[in-house]
Every structure is written in structure tokens, then in C-alpha cells.
Amino acid sequence: MYVRRLELVDFRSYPRCVVEFEPGCSVLVGPNGVGKTNLVEALGYVSTLDSHRVATDAPLVRAGATSAVIRSEIVHEHRSLSVELAIEPGKANRARLGGSPVRRARDVLGALRMVLFAPEDLALVRGDPAERRNYLDHLLVARQPRYAGVRADYERVLKQRNALLRTAYLARKTGAGTRDLSTLDVWDVHLASHGAELLAARLELCAALGPHIAKAYDAVAAGRGRAGIAYRSRVPIEPADRESLSAALSAALVESRPSEVERGMTLVGPHRDDLLLTLGELPAKGYASHGESWSMALALRLAAYELLRTEGIEPVLALDDVFAELDAGRRERLAELVGSAGQLLITCAVAEDVPAALRGARYEVSEGEVHRA
């Protein structure tokens, strides 16, 4: 799989931009702040419908414009597929696949499989649990796009359940009396069902990722520590089949209901879970040095990339401003790990930061423009 063409209209800093890519390695070079990251961010958005830099769509639209458009042409197994996304903050995004409109934007997920590593990925190690949950869920969808629907169903039920709890909480706080919470039982059934499906998939994914994370960290850090991953939930996760997990979620919801009514929110479920990342016997968060945190974050992305490859998916790999943060040894080891990628996109401010083995096609990026060197 590789991206042959990317066109941006009013996306970030680009009024309009067209870039033609090839398989193999492509290096995007330019000073900081000229828009290199915007290019890989746009492709990441096609892959996940999320930005790795911001939580909302509004910053993706160029100042003064009302919408942005991303058009991409993706080649997979000698077949070309076009994907177009129209981003309109405050409205549902519109999408076209193969030139035809699709009912939901998420129907384009799976057209481009991509793994992107960026400086923001330090949050996978040092940040909030939501960062690690998103890492898992995006990888779930890359493996099997149907999990975008599972995730959406769970979030829809969670939103409805939280709204009911919040209404009751506010009524009690303002002296407006009590609210009928009998429908919570119905939402509990749906939450347990959708939550169990999502939870079972996450657990299976963690098990599959474990060996790849250990191997990637060992390679990047040159054997200086053993990296591990474990899933953490307030719900018993053994056994990990859907029926058992659904029963465990149902029981946990019953047990936590008094606290949930008191606080006005859902306190158990996959939306509250976390990943425990370890180096040796210690958790990486709070104990890892800056260099170790970088290596762990990089290992998480490389593990995702290798897992997809072992399952017959050849994703696009993007490294955004990575080499400047690595010492010479880590640069060379990373180059060895990614040199065989079907398509590798690298952004950098200084071309010499990129190991010689990865200096393929070169693109010069300036304010609003990209030119093949």
C-alpha cells in the first residue's frame, strides 16, 4: 500500500497543494513552521479521521476559510482508490470513496492504513489514559475497520447513559427533586454488550502487541531494558471472552450505580481503562527517562507497524521530525528497522539528520508550497 497523490485545499497552512509520491522512502525537508507536519497530519486524518495534534477539527481549516478538503489517491495491490474528505467544523464531515459519496465519513476507514510516529507520541508514555486508549482503538480499526462501528456504538450508549445520570445529578443539586432512573437498566444492557465487544478486542490486541513491543524496544534501545504492556481495567478481565466480559461489566455497573448517581457519570467500562507500560519491573510513566520514554513511544508505533505487516497489511509508515530527537546510535538502529517499509514518509528540518540509508526522494517544503528536489 502506498499514497500516490495528496491534494489539500484550505487545510492548515495550504490554500492548495498537490504532492505526487512514490513507493519507498520520501523525505520532506524544510525549516520549522512551513507545513511539513501538515502533510503527514492530513494523511493521518484520512487513516483515522483524527488529528495527532489537536482534539477538534477547527484548527485544521485554514484561517479565513470555512472548510478544508483532503483528497488522496491510494494504491493497494495494483489497484488505485481515491478518498476525499471535506472537513466543516461544527458539521458532520462529508466523504467520497472512489468518487462516490458515502453515508458516513467512517466508511472510508481502512482505505489507507498508516502508522504515524510524531513528537506528540511522548503522551503515550507520559500522558493521560485517553492517549493510550486511542492508540489501541486506532490500531483496532486499522486491523479491522468494523471496530469503528463498535466504538461508535459504545460511545453513543455512553453519551445517553451519562446524560441521564447528569440530569438526575443536577436535579438533586438544584433542589428540583429526583428523576426516574429506571431506564438505566436498559442502557446498562447496551453498555455491557458493546463494551464487552470492545474490551475483548482490546485484550486480544494487547496480547498480540506484547512480543512486538518487547522486540522493538530492544532494537531501538540496544538491549537496555525489557519493555512490556498490560491492560488495566476495573472490571475482571479473565476469562476474556465476550460473554464473560459482558457479565462482568453488568455486575460492575450494578455495584457502581450508587457512586455514579452521586457523581452524575459512568464510572466503569472501557472508557475508563488504561494500559500499563513497563520497563523492567517499573511502570514507564513516572520512572522512564526522557530517552527511555522516546524509545518506548517509538516501540509502540513500530510494534503497531510490525503487527499489521505480519497480518498481511503493508501500512504506510510516517516519521514526523523524529531523527532530530535521537542520538546517532538510535538513528542508525531505527533506519535498520524501517528501511524495508513499502512507503516511508519522513519530515525533517535538516536533511543530514536522516541516515544515508533512508535518503530517497526529496521534497523541499516552503510556506504553502512543496517541490520535488
Rank of each mutant, 00 (worst) to 15 (best):
K285C: 10
E292K: 02
V75G: 09
L198Y: 13
L345G: 10
T278G: 04
A118I: 01
A171E: 11
V125C: 05
G195W: 11
P270R: 11
L139S: 13
R372A: 14
E369Y: 00
P239D: 03
V40T: 14
A95C: 11
L124W: 07
S340Y: 09
A148V: 13
H138R: 15
D327R: 10
V27Q: 01
L97H: 05
L112C: 09
R126N: 13
R372M: 00
A252M: 14
R301Q: 13
V316T: 14
A240V: 04
R62C: 03
G98D: 01
G99R: 03
T266W: 10
A130Q: 14
H138Y: 08
E364D: 13
A335C: 12
E41C: 04
A65M: 05
A42M: 04
V370A: 07
G127E: 09
V83N: 07
N134V: 10
N134Q: 15
V9K: 09
K159G: 12
V19Y: 00
E369G: 00
G286Y: 05
G110E: 01
S82Q: 13
D107M: 05
C25V: 14
L334W: 08
L112V: 09
L279A: 04
M1T: 12
V102H: 04
R172N: 09
L140T: 08
L209A: 08
L308M: 15
S233Q: 02
A95I: 04
P283W: 04
P15V: 05
F11H: 05
R179W: 00
L337G: 08
V189W: 03
V141A: 13
H371K: 15
V350D: 15
D353G: 01
R263C: 10
Y2H: 15
G280K: 03
G90F: 06
L49S: 07
D180E: 03
V141Y: 13
R113M: 03
R4Y: 07
L165Y: 06
N162I: 09
L184D: 02
E22A: 15
D218F: 05
L249I: 15
A196L: 11
V46A: 11
G64V: 06
D107C: 01
T48E: 03
E77T: 11
R202W: 09
E131V: 08
P59W: 06
G149W: 15
A142S: 15
V69R: 11
L275V: 10
D218H: 10
A201K: 08
V102W: 03
A214P: 07
R126Y: 05
E131G: 08
R272N: 11
L282I: 01
V69H: 03
V27P: 02
F11P: 05
L358S: 00
L279G: 01
S340I: 05
Y169E: 01
L358K: 01
D188K: 06
E369Q: 13
A227W: 02
G44K: 02
A324R: 08
Y217F: 13
S289D: 06
R272Q: 14
R263D: 08
G228W: 01
H76K: 15
K159N: 11
L191N: 08
C25G: 05
A68H: 06
T266D: 10
D137E: 15
V18P: 00
G264K: 12
